[in-house]
Design a binder for these strands. Structure first.
Length: 892
RNA sequence: GGGCGAUUAGCUCAGUUGGUUAGAGCGCCACGUUGACAUCGUGGAGGUCAGUGGUUCAAAUCCACUAUCGCCCA
């Protein structure tokens, strides 16, 4: 084995071996039931980012852990066709060729997109492989595959037939750049500083019957005597106004109510009405009503039976309804109208105004509310099912606090606009006959001659919502569906709880009659080391591929798995990745040491006839780790479990037991055999514990460690198929842990004294240990105390008590146990006094605190007996230490 | 406007149902290449656990309020 671990030559070959050996497929002979995860399908156009690295780390961790535990694990991989993203990408490609989607036509465009997908669509899968993802690539799916398309079509027809999908003309979120409707979720709101224009509309009365001069003449409103002022942030929508609304019963407007205002530019007469919606405090108190371009106005319009006038084309230019402004782009029209309003004396004032503006999540442009005919899912009945599944505990959300978020959204859900005016996606399975009849067809139905299919496609999330079961063959009753559905855990980022998780719950519960998974585990977002969102413009994006190249996949995975807690955003600190890389190197070198001592799998069966205190201690600690990590993993506390494994392997096994083993391996043949067995048992077991976190390094060194010399390893000889350690409570040894703790404390104290007195590391010192009632135990540990404390064994005395304490010595006082290091020539009595006084102060405070506690009758009376007892024991130890320190100070 | 999260060592974070002296990594100081590892070892310094009040024998942990930062929903 090389001196340092190199991940580069290790990772790819191991992965290839695992994949080609079929280790990722569910084992038909697995002793435990299925454990299934559907991958959150990455965009087929996507490139690996830390979000992917995060979900792969956690899902692969769960899958490898459950696989080793004997579950029949299946992790279904796949990709998402990402309608808007992919279409945008291919359109850009066409533009670079001097053509466009419209010019080449739908068929050619789709051919080009599939061509693109075939060429580049496999990249993300290989990047997931680099992360070590042990998903079953044989079962890989793509949302636009034949099978999944059948699922989508079946789902659509079923929902339509059940009255849960309908077509209608409603106000939708329109994206003018993409020229498609998007769902409410795809609109983000940004607070912006805008202008609010106060515009007065002339009112028809006995003195004035309407404009006598053309718009733009400057005399349009000449002669008007009454006005009503409205405020708007979107002056161009004036062209679509069909009323002015005032607060009911507002005296300011009582004489105007029921009259007609004259719409600027178009001279349309519009009624002045009263509606509860109007806030009398806001602006002038009156508001313009544009039912076809504003959600609230739409509702007002419905209540008052107002006409809905759409003034926009699909590209957000003004249509024929806009009179003189026809053909102008929406913001150019705004500018022009404002100018004209001013010329006509209708502009009262312009104020700065703060408002939240709807932005397209995809293209960043301002979303335009637009009246348009679209397809919708009636969500209420579906949401009720999805709500019940969580309320009744059939599906649990981790962390639990997200259940509240889920409830709130589901309870207030609105219908879901699922049609998109795109070409790349699942085409809506609806055909129209020449006579206008509409046919909704299932996957095996052929449209009749002359039928024309609906041109729109479905929201990508509609197909994603079927993912847990569509990937297993639904609606066909396939063996996979029967065996692996419902799935077990849905693991994904909390940022897509509504987009994806909620939709899977709704569609899954309704279409399959069962919740699609029993647990939803939501991880946090990965941010940069100072908590900033990673973004290209900031230049703080960490590329996981580069990290894996430099530090290894295990380092990245271990960092992501252990840097935080469930559901919490994680600030990725590059130094932590480096530390994780060092951890891999530590594992490598521990194994290198163990192997260099000739330890192999055959040692596992050595008779444990000479278990030393240290052996019993490390075995107890190992079993405690197994038991603790089992509890933590079952509770989805992956971070804490991983940290504990690290601390055990480095802080206890490497820092202490390996050093102990060096001594014990110099002992009798019997002791050597026992030590080798313990070294093997604990190291090999800890490697298995860690394998789900850091699969590559653990497999690599496990192969070295478990290789039987002279024998060909079995084809299935992989740590990923080995049993996961479960720990045995019967092998816990609290006495050994307490005893070793004392020995270790003594050794550290000796080292501390050596360091304080600047004793050269190479120098072996003399020591007298006064063990009191622990003398027997300590005597048995003499060799280890000597070696690890760098005390000359010949000059190490361990006695029960001592008559004359050496003066020219540094003293160690542990409470019940003392030690003296006669450091000839080095001891400065004054310095020693200062040192001991400092300790004395601490001991006094310690004793005082404990005495106060135990003097408190309510503590003794109300605290549990074991807590009180522990306090009594500690007090006794502290008192002994205090007495010794006082004595020592008196002596010198 | 409603809701959620965070605030612990210089930095990044742990701290499982309240229970000894609150931990880790990095950074810092001192020493060290002894045959696993300098991607390391040994020893050390460093924290009024954001603040106030409360519950409790006991609070970083539970409750209330406040402050700051961040997120979600409307």
């Amino acid at each position: 084995m090389a001196k340092a671990y190199e991940h580069q030559p290790v990772e790819r070959p191991l992965y290839t071996w695992w994949e080609q050996s079929g280790f990722f497929a569910p084992r038909p002979d697995a002793p435990k039931p299925p454990f299934v995860i559907s991958i959150p399908p990455p965009n087929v156009t996507g490139e690996l980012h830390l979000g992917h690295a995060m979900f792969v780390t956690i899902e692969d961790l769960m899958i490898r852990w459950r696989r080793m535990q004997g579950y029949q694990t299946l992790w279904v991989p796949g990709t998402d066709h990402a309608g808007i993203a992919t279409q945008t990408l291919v359109e850009k490609l066409l533009r670079s060729e001097g053509t466009s989607r419209e010019q080449v036509g739908r068929e050619e465009f789709l051919r080009r997109t599939w061509e693109w997908k075939a060429k580049y669509g496999g990249e993300i899968q290989n990047q997931l492989r680099r992360l070590g993802a042990s998903c079953d690539w044989e079962r890989e799916r793509f949302t636009l595959d034949e099978g999944l398309s059948r699922s989508v079509q079946t789902a659509f027809k079923r929902l339509y037939d059940d009255g849960l999908i309908y077509k209608g003309t409603y106000l939708v979120n329109w994206s003018p750049n993409l020229q498609t409707a998007v769902s409410d979720l795809e609109v983000e709101f940004e607070t912006r500083q805008v202008s609010i224009w106060h515009v007065r509309y002339p009112v028809i009365n006995a003195d004035w019957a309407g404009p006598q001069h053309p718009w733009g003449s400057g005399r349009w409103a000449e002669g008007a005597t009454q006005w009503i002022t409205v405020a708007t942030t979107r002056p161009e929508t004036i062209l679509g106004d069909t009323a002015v609304a005032t607060p009911p019963g507002d005296p300011r407007f009582s004489d105007l109510l029921g009259r007609s205002a004259v719409l600027p530019a178009l001279a349309r007469h519009i009624p002045i009405i009263a509606d509860e919606y109007v806030d009398p405090e806001f602006g002038s108190g009156a508001v313009k009503i544009t039912p076809a371009h504003d959600k609230n106005d739409y509702e007002v319009g419905k209540r008052h039976n107002l006409p809905q006038i759409n003034i926009l084309n699909k590209d957000a230019t003004i249509n024929a309804e806009g009179g003189p402004y026809q053909g102008m782009e929406r913001f150019a029209a705004r500018k022009a109208i404002v100018q004209d309003l001013e010329r006509e004396g209708l502009l009262v004032k312009v104020d700065p105004h703060t408002m939240s503006v709807g932005i397209s999540q995809r293209s960043g442009e301002i979303i335009e509310p637009l009246l348009s005919e679209q397809w919708f899912v009636k969500t209420r009945p579906l949401a009720d099912l999805a709500l019940a599944a969580v309320r009744e505990g059939r599906t649990k959300i981790i962390p639990e606090r997200f259940e509240k978020v889920y409830y709130h959204w589901m309870e207030n859900i609105e219908d879901w606009c699922i049609s998109r005016q795109l070409w790349w996606g699942h085409r809506i399975p609806v055909w129209y006959m020449p006579d206008g009849t509409m046919l909704v067809l299932g996957p095996d139905e052929t449209p009749p001659e002359g039928a024309v299919q609906d041109p729109d496609v479905l929201d990508t999330w509609f197909s994603s919502g079927l993912w847990p079961f569509s990937t297993l063959g639904w609606p066909e009753q396939t063996p996979d569906l029967a065996t692996y559905y419902p799935t077990s855990v849905m693991e994904t980022g909390y940022d897509i709880i509504f987009f994806w998780v909620a939709r899977m719950m709704m569609l899954g519960c309704y279409l399959t009659g069962t919740e699609p998974f029993h647990t939803i585990y939501l991880h946090g977002l990965v941010r940069d080391e100072h908590g900033r969102k990673m973004s290209k413009s900031y230049g703080n994006v960490v590329n996981p591929l580069e990290v894996m190249d430099a530090q290894g996949t295990d380092a990245l995975r271990y960092t992501l798995a252990t840097s935080g807690t469930p559901g919490q955003d994680l600030n990725l600190n590059p130094q932590r990745i480096e530390a994780a890389r060092n951890f891999a190197n530590k594992i490598w070198n521990i194994t290198r040491f163990v192997i260099s001592k000739g330890v192999r799998s055959s040692d596992a069966n050595n008779p444990l006839t000479m278990l030393s205190l240290a052996d019993r201690w490390i075995l107890s600690r190992y079993h405690r780790l197994c038991l603790d990590s089992d509890r933590l993993l079952e509770g989805y506390n992956f971070g804490e479990a991983g940290r504990q494994m690290h601390d055990f392997l480095w802080g206890e096994f490497a820092d202490w037991y390996v050093e102990i083993a060096k001594v014990q391996l110099e002992g009798s043949a019997e002791q050597q055999a026992t030590t080798r067995a313990v070294l093997y048992t604990v190291l090999e077991g800890t490697l298995r514990l860690l394998h789900p976190y850091i699969p590559f390094i653990t497999e690599e060194v496990w192969q070295y460690l478990t290789r039987v010399e002279g024998q060909e390893a079995a084809a299935s000889h992989s740590i990923m198929l080995a049993a996961y350690p479960s720990g045995d409570a019967a092998l816990l040894n609290p006495q050994a842990e307490t005893d070793w703790d004392l020995v270790q404390t003594l050794i550290v104290a000796i080292r501390n004294i050596r360091s304080e007195y600047k004793v050269e590391p190479a120098k072996w010192v003399a020591a007298t240990v006064v063990g009191g009632e622990r003398v027997t135990m300590l005597r048995e540990q003499a060799a280890l105390i000597a070696r690890l404390g760098r005390v000359d064994l010949q000059r190490l005395e361990i006695v029960e008590s001592i008559a004359a304490k050496p003066t020219q010595s540094a003293a160690i006082v542990l409470g019940g146990v003392e030690a003296y290091l006669p450091l000839a020539g080095l001891i400065d009595l004054e310095a020693e006094r200062v040192r001991l006084r400092k300790e004395l102060e601490q001991a006094e405070a310690d004793v005082a605190r404990r005495e106060a506690k135990l003097d408190n009758p309510s503590f003794v009376g109300k605290a549990p007996a074991n807590v009180v007892q522990r306090e009594r024991d500690s007090l006794e130890t502290a008192r002994a230490a205090l007495a010794s320190l006082r004595e020592r100070l008196a002596e010198i």
